[in-house]
């Protein structure tokens, strides 16, 4: 079985955006979602393309072209979807993030963790 590479932070953001967008994951929507996830940092569309190419080369993503669309000047969209290897890599990243979180919460205290939990809750609405 192919081994999933460890992911960089930006790669994690792009994969998460594709996971969240489902069947609607193409350049513009992925970029918008990554910008949301990376806020307040600005993200360029070019950086998203570079990462999509790299993830596709690693076999974590696959892509297909849609039919041409009049609202895009007759150009097609390239839709992306997570492959099994991508899902596994993202799962491993999430697991690593959870372990990091647990250690930080343990060291800095439950009060601090509760504070951040509340803040995230507010952001999520």
């Amino acid at each position: 079985m192919a081994k999933a590479d460890s992911l960089g932070q930006f790669e994690q953001l792009v994969l998460t955006a594709i996971l969240a967008l489902g069947d609607e994951a193409y350049g513009v929507t992925i970029h918008a979602r990554v910008e949301q996830l990376a806020a307040p940092k600005a993200v360029s569309l070019g950086a998203v393309y570079v990462t999509l190419d790299r993830l596709e080369d690693k076999g974590l993503l696959s892509s297909r072209l849609s039919d041409p669309m009049p609202e895009r000047g007759g150009r097609a969209r390239r839709y992306y979807r997570l492959e099994a290897l991508g899902e596994r890599a993202l799962g491993e990243s999430a697991e690593t993030a959870r372990r990091i979180w647990e250690v930080i919460a343990e060291v800095w205290g439950k009060e601090w963790a509760r504070e951040w939990g509340k803040r995230w809750g507010k952001e999520a609405g």
Binding site: G27, L45, E71, G73, A76, R77, R78
Partner: peptide, 11 residues
Amino acid sequence: REEVLGDLHER
């Protein structure tokens, strides 16, 4: 070319 031109057009 196809997808990048389309994305730029859409934006």
